[in-house]
């Protein structure tokens, strides 16, 4: 039983760490602000979610895991609000999103 919970929590925490690192790579590699928004929303959802699930599995049923679930729910509710506010502020600040067709024409010139 102990082995089973260990395996489950190790797998989920490692998976979450992978998505967190992928988000970090993406925020450096992607070419413009609007595409970087997508890279940030990845660790905010599945990265946090998998790590928290791994910690909950390791803790078992107690008040600590309730707190962890509340942190996860809070981040899932506030993350999109912050991202949407950022994107809206950027559009109102006259920041032009890089589009696929424009990118093609600029790379050929």
């Amino acid at each position: 039983m102990q082995l089973l919970t260990d395996i489950i929590s190790w797998t989920t925490i490692l998976g979450g760490s992978f998505f967190v690192i992928t988000g970090g790579i993406g925020i450096l590699r992607l070419p413009d602000f609007f595409t970087r928004l997508h890279a940030v929303s990845m660790p905010d959802t599945l990265g946090v979610g998998l790590i928290v699930i791994g910690l909950v599995v390791q803790t078992g049923f107690s008040l600590t895991s309730v707190k962890l679930i509340m942190i996860l729910l809070f981040m899932l509710f506030t993350g999109p609000a912050a991202t949407h506010a950022l994107a809206k502020a950027a559009i109102h600040g006259k920041l032009e999103p890089l589009l696929f067709n424009k990118e093609e024409s600029s790379s050929s010139s």
């Binding site: 929303s41 959802t45 599945l46 899932l76 994107a87 559009i91």
Partner: peptide, 22 residues
Amino acid sequence: NSITLTPGTVSIDVQDNRITVH
């Protein structure tokens, strides 16, 4: 919120019953 929560799509603006999505 659901659009923004899924990675790969972000809702930029909500106006007049239309949602602009990147």
